[in-house]
Design a protein around this nucleic acid. Structure first.
Lengths: 343, 343
DNA sequence: AAGATAAGCTAAATCGTTTCAGAAGGCAAT
DNA sequence: ATTGCCTTCTGAAACGATTTAGCTTATCTT
C-alpha cells in the first residue's frame, strides 16, 4: 500500500491548509481546537487517499514517547519465559505498544547492558526478569522514576513494582502433599545461586519439613556441571548411599535435566523416588510416568505485569510501587502417587 | 548513571564549541572533518563526564534509520521459533541492532498487520516466518526495496531473500531410512494447509515411496480438531482397520500431539508403529522410547537470516534476492529401529 | 605584499510532528 | 465606528542530531 512516505506537509498542501491543522485533525483533536467540519473531512479524506502513516521518529522526538516497551527475560527459549513473552506481547499490542525483547541468560552484566540499550533506544518502560545483581540498574531506573516492572523474582528491599508467585506457599504445599502421601526422605534440588523465587520455594519446603519434624535434605548444584552432579546424586540414591524417596526439582530446566538423568540411572518413578517439578510442559506429560508439577499462572502474570507497567506509563506523577502475588495450582500425577496406593 | 538527559548542545556549551563539532567528534569523524586534537579530547572528556547518551529518535529522524529490526515468528512459544529468535537476537545485538518481535499464529491477517506496524515503527528491515498469504505484503515491501528476509518457508515465485531447509531432501531421507529399516506401510501425517515447508517434506516422502513402488499414505488433519482426528486415526491403526507400520509427523507440534495420542491409545513404539518427527526437543528424548527426528540447523538458520538482512541493510543499491538452502541432520533412535533388529 | 591553500571551526538547514500564541475575518453590542 | 468576542485557522518554535556550505585565521607561495 505505502507507495512513498507521505508527510503531513504534503497532505497540508494537497488540502490547502496548514500542516498544523492536519496534525490536529489526524490526532482527533479537531473539535478540541475548533476546526471546521468541512476542513476536517477534507483532510481525513486526503490522508486516507494518500495512505498517510505517521513518522514514529518525528513523533517520538517531539513527544518524548516511543510507544515501545522493553522486555528482558532470562531465556526466550525457556517455555516459561516464551509464554510470558507471548502474553506481554499480546497485551502490549492491544494497548498500542510494541515490544523489544532480549535474553539475559541470568547474567547480570548482560542484563544491565541490555537494559541500558533499551533505555537508549527510548523505550517508555521495561518489564524484566531480574537476576542476582539487577539491583544496581533497577535502583537507578527507579530513582529516575523510569517505569519498571519486575516479574518472577523479588527484591524485597526495593520499592519496585513486581509480579510474583507465592513461591513459599508453592514449596510448602507440594512438600506437605508428599509428606501426606507417605514420603519421609524428601530432597529439595536446586541450582546454586541466590534467586529469590528459588529461595521462596526452598523456604516453603523447609517449613513443611520442620512442621513434621523431618530432616531437611537440600541439594544445590552448579549450573555448569549440573548433569554430572545430578547423575552422581541419583546414582547414590539408587545404590542406597543416599536415603531419598522423593525429589522436588526447584524449576523447570532443572526438572528436565533430572528426568534425563533419572532415565539414565534407571531409577523407577515413583517406586524408587517420587517426583515433583515446576512449570509442566510436554516433556513432563510425556515422561513415563507423567510428572507432577506446580503450575504457574503465566498468562495472569503477563497480564498483571503489563497492567502495572501501563499504570506507570500513564501516571503523571510518580506512583508507589505495587507488588502482586499470585497463587499457583498443582497437577498431581503418577510420579507422586501415595505410597499406600502404589503397593 | 544517567542523572538527566544530556543533549549535544549542553556538551557544546560546556566545552565552549558548537554542537556541530560535538556531533562530529562523538561520531568518531573528528579526523575526517579536521577537528583539532585538543578540542576532540575536551569534548570526549566532557561527554563522558556528563554521561551523554544519544537520543535515538532525533538521530533516527535525521538519518531515516532506527537500528531496529522486526522479527515475526509463527509462535514464540514454539521451541523452534524461540531458538531461532534467540539466535537472531544475538546476531542483531552483535551488530548494533535491536529486535522487535511478534507472533503471527500463522494467521495472515495478524501477520500483515504486524508487518505494517513494524514498518510504521520505523524498523530498518524485517525477518519473517511467512504463512500462506504473506505474499501480498511481502510483495509490496519487496517492490519498495524494503529489506526483508523470509525464513523456514518459501514462495518460489517471489524474488525474496530466504533461508530454507532442504525439506524435500529431509522428507526423502527419513522415508528412505524407514523403508530400508523394513517398513512398508509408512504414513505421512501433517496439518492441512498449504505451507511450503510441509509441502517439501511431503514431496520427499512421495518420491521415496514411489521410487520403491510403495503406496503413499498421506493424512492431513485440521489444526483445530487435530487431537480428535489423530486419536481416531491411531485407534484405527491399533484395531487394524488402517494398515500402517510407521508414522512420519511433519512438524514438531504435530509430533507432540501425536505422542500424547500414542500414549493414550496405548500403541507400542516401534512394535506397532515406528515414529519419525521433526525438530526434536526434551519431549522427544524423554518419551519412551525416544523419538527419531530431523534436526534443523536452527542456529545456522538464524545466523544466515540476519546475514542476508544485513546485506540488504548495508547495500546502497537494490540487491538481487538470495536463497540459502540448508541441509538437515538426523537423529535415529529406538522409535525407528529396523524391523529385523527388534525381532 | 597579494593571493592561494589549508586547518579548524560554526551557522543554519533539515528530518516530521506537535502545540502555543496569535492572526484574520465575521458579527454583535455599545 | 469602535470595541469585544467568537470561530477558524496559521506561523513558527521546539524536539536533538547530522551535515553542508562557508567563515575565520594562519601559513605558505611567488
Amino acid at each position: 500500500m505505502p507507495k512513498k512516505k507521505v508527510s503531513i506537509k504534503e497532505i497540508a498542501s494537497a488540502a490547502g491548509v496548514s500542516s498544523a491543522l492536519v496534525s490536529m485533525v489526524l490526532n482527533g483533536k479537531a473539535k478540541q481546537y475548533g476546526i471546521g467540519e468541512e476542513a476536517t473531512q477534507r483532510v481525513l479524506r486526503i490522508a486516507r487517499e494518500m495512505n498517510y502513516q505517521p513518522n514514529i521518529m518525528a513523533r517520538g522526538l517531539r513527544s518524548g514517547k516511543s510507544h515501545l516497551v522493553g522486555l528482558v527475560v532470562a531465556d526466550i527459549a525457556n517455555p516459561f519465559f516464551a509464554k510470558l513473552a507471548r502474553e506481554i506481547e499480546k497485551q502490549a499490542s492491544e494497548h498500542g505498544y510494541t515490544v523489544i525483547y532480549g535474553s539475559s541468560d541470568d547474567n547480570s552484566r548482560r542484563l544491565n547492558s541490555f537494559m541500558q540499550t533499551l533505555v537508549n533506544q527510548g523505550v517508555d518502560g521495561i518489564i524484566a526478569i531480574p537476576c542476582e545483581d539487577t539491583i544496581k540498574i533497577a535502583a537507578e531506573l527507579q530513582e529516575q522514576k523510569f517505569p519498571l516492572v519486575l516479574v518472577d523474582r523479588d527484591y524485597t528491599d526495593m520499592e519496585i513494582s513486581s509480579v510474583l508467585l507465592d513461591n513459599e506457599q508453592a514449596g510448602r504445599q507440594i512438600t506437605d502433599y508428599l509428606i501426606t502421601a507417605g514420603y519421609r526422605h524428601i530432597a529439595f534440588v536446586a541450582y546454586s545461586g541466590d534467586l529469590s523465587h528459588i529461595h521462596g520455594r526452598l523456604l516453603g519446603y523447609q517449613k513443611a519439613m520442620q512442621a513434621h519434624g523431618l530432616a531437611e535434605k537440600v541439594y544445590r548444584f552448579n549450573k555448569d556441571e549440573s548433569r554430572e552432579s545430578i547423575r552422581a546424586f541419583l546414582s547414590s540414591i539408587r545404590s542406597g548411599d543416599e536415603t531419598v524417596d522423593a525429589l522436588i526439582f526447584a524449576n523447570n530446566t532443572l526438572t528436565i535435566e533430572g528426568l534425563y538423568m533419572i532415565r539414565e540411572t534407571c531409577l523407577r518413578v515413583p517406586e524408587d523416588v517420587a517426583l515433583f517439578g515446576f512449570d509442566g510442559g510436554n516433556a513432563f506429560d510425556l515422561f513415563t510416568p507423567p510428572v507432577s508439577y506446580v503450575r504457574q499462572p503465566i498468562t495472569e502474570m503477563g497480564r498483571q505485569a503489563f497492567q502495572l507497567l501501563m499504570k506507570q506509563l500513564e501516571a503523571t506523577e510518580p506512583l508507589p510501587a505495587e507488588k502482586v502475588v499470585l497463587q499457583s495450582s498443582f497437577v498431581y500425577t503418577a510420579s507422586s502417587k501415595s505410597r499406600s496406593e502404589r503397593k
